Computed example of a mutant assay.
Amino acid sequence: MLMSTQANRYAHQLLTARADARQIPCLTRDAQLSVDDGYDIARRIADLRIAQGETPVGRKIAFANRKTSSNYGAREPINAPVWAYIYDATVRYSDNNHGLQSLKGAVQPRIAPEIVFKLGSAPKANATVEDIADCIEWMTHGFELAVCPFPGWKFEAADAVAAFGLHGSLILGEPHMLSAGTRRHLGDILTNVSVSLSYSDGEETTLHSAGFGSNVLDSPVHAVWHLHQMLKTQPQFPSLAAGELIATGTLTDAYPIKAGQTWSTAFSGVALPGLTLSFV
């Protein structure tokens, strides 16, 4: 376990790098840090951000995509999901599923299409996947803008946890309220969902990649259940609560983006509209 002075030092280092939009060496380059150490740093960061006026509005799950998560990790693959807070300052809604996003201050930005839930109630301690689904008030599609302060997107799991879960911002589409019947089958529905991800640098649009709900720990609903289980082992953090937004993890890999591009998605297998997001 890190000493509090060490955790505070790393927390201030990461927050300063974020404010200055600059890269820094991995924390694990010169220190033996575990994932638990990363969460200790993340706890200090959350305290500091809250003290500065930001409000956590939910959590994001990272490295939940079994097809791509093992591609990350400088020394060893990252084979288990992690989570981080998202804040009122980093989450916004698109206008009619279209948005414009500045990349100013975004360090090595990448785009990640996700399913996002809002919890209408808190899961009970022993919640099953079905219980988790019953807690969901609405779902939507979101683009996460992932950022990385570590050169070349090379890091270990502890680095990623400490560095805000690599969260930059989250742009949400139109929320869709869920009926009781839909919630009963939501896990299976989202297991079978697919998304296509396209981009353009000008007038021509190119299909870039595709992703599937089954990639995300078998289903985005399962990903929330997994987060619920993780939090039971982390008493320094509150459990999931009513009103939280949960970004469940990217359906595809996270891809580099640049100003002048427009990225868009289309879904099949679920009644969700795609998103179109232009970067400046």
Rank of each mutant, 00 (worst) to 15 (best):
His167Leu: 08
Thr250Lys: 00
Glu137Asn: 06
Trp83Ile: 01
Arg49Pro: 04
Leu178Lys: 08
Pro113Ala: 02
Arg44Ala: 15
Val224Pro: 03
Val116Asn: 06
Ala162Ile: 11
Val216Glu: 07
Val129Trp: 07
Asp88Ile: 02
Ala247Met: 09
Pro175Trp: 01
Ile50Phe: 08
His141Tyr: 10
Asp88His: 03
Val82Ala: 10
Ala146Lys: 09
Phe212Cys: 12
Arg110Asp: 11
Ala163Asp: 11
Ser169Tyr: 00
Thr265Val: 02
Thr128Cys: 11
Arg9Lys: 13
Thr5Phe: 14
Ala125Asp: 14
Leu48Arg: 14
Phe150Ala: 00
Glu114Gly: 00
Glu156Cys: 09
Asp37Ser: 00
Arg184Met: 14
Asp218Leu: 10
Ser200Asn: 11
Leu186Glu: 06
Ala112Ile: 00
Phe63Ala: 06
Glu130Ser: 15
Gln108His: 13
Ile136Gln: 01
Leu240Gln: 06
Ile78Thr: 01
Leu33Thr: 04
Arg9Gly: 14
Ala42Tyr: 04
Val147His: 02
Ala106Asp: 12
Gln234Ser: 11
Asp36Met: 13
Thr68Arg: 03
Ile45Leu: 10
Tyr93Ile: 04
Leu119Asp: 03
Asn96Pro: 01
Gly53Ser: 08
Val270Glu: 03
Cys26Ile: 05
Phe164Pro: 00
Gln6Ala: 13
Tyr255Gln: 01
Leu231Cys: 07
Lys67Met: 00
Cys148Pro: 12
Thr16Arg: 10
Phe155Ile: 05
Gly120Trp: 07
Gln6Lys: 12
Ser102Trp: 08
Gly181His: 05
Gln229Arg: 15
Met139Thr: 06
Gln23Glu: 15
Leu2Gly: 10
Asn192Ile: 04
Val193Trp: 04
Val221Lys: 04
Asn8Arg: 15
Leu178Asp: 11
Gly243Pro: 05
Ala74Val: 12
Ile189Lys: 09
Asp218Ile: 05
Ala64Gln: 09
Asp95Cys: 11
Thr5Tyr: 12
Val35Pro: 03
Val224Lys: 02
Gln13Pro: 02
Ala254Trp: 01
Asn79Phe: 07
His176Cys: 13
Arg44Asp: 13
Arg110Met: 15
Ala51Val: 04
Pro235Ala: 09
Ala51Pro: 01
Asp37Pro: 04
Gly168Asn: 10
Asp188Leu: 10
Leu275Tyr: 04
Ile41His: 03
Ile246Met: 02
Glu244Asp: 07
Thr276Lys: 09
Phe212Ala: 13
Gly58Cys: 04
Leu33Trp: 08
Ser169Ile: 00
Asn65Pro: 01
Phe143Arg: 03
Gln52Pro: 00
Tyr72Trp: 09
Gln236Phe: 12
Val216Ala: 03
Phe155Asn: 00
Gln52Met: 11
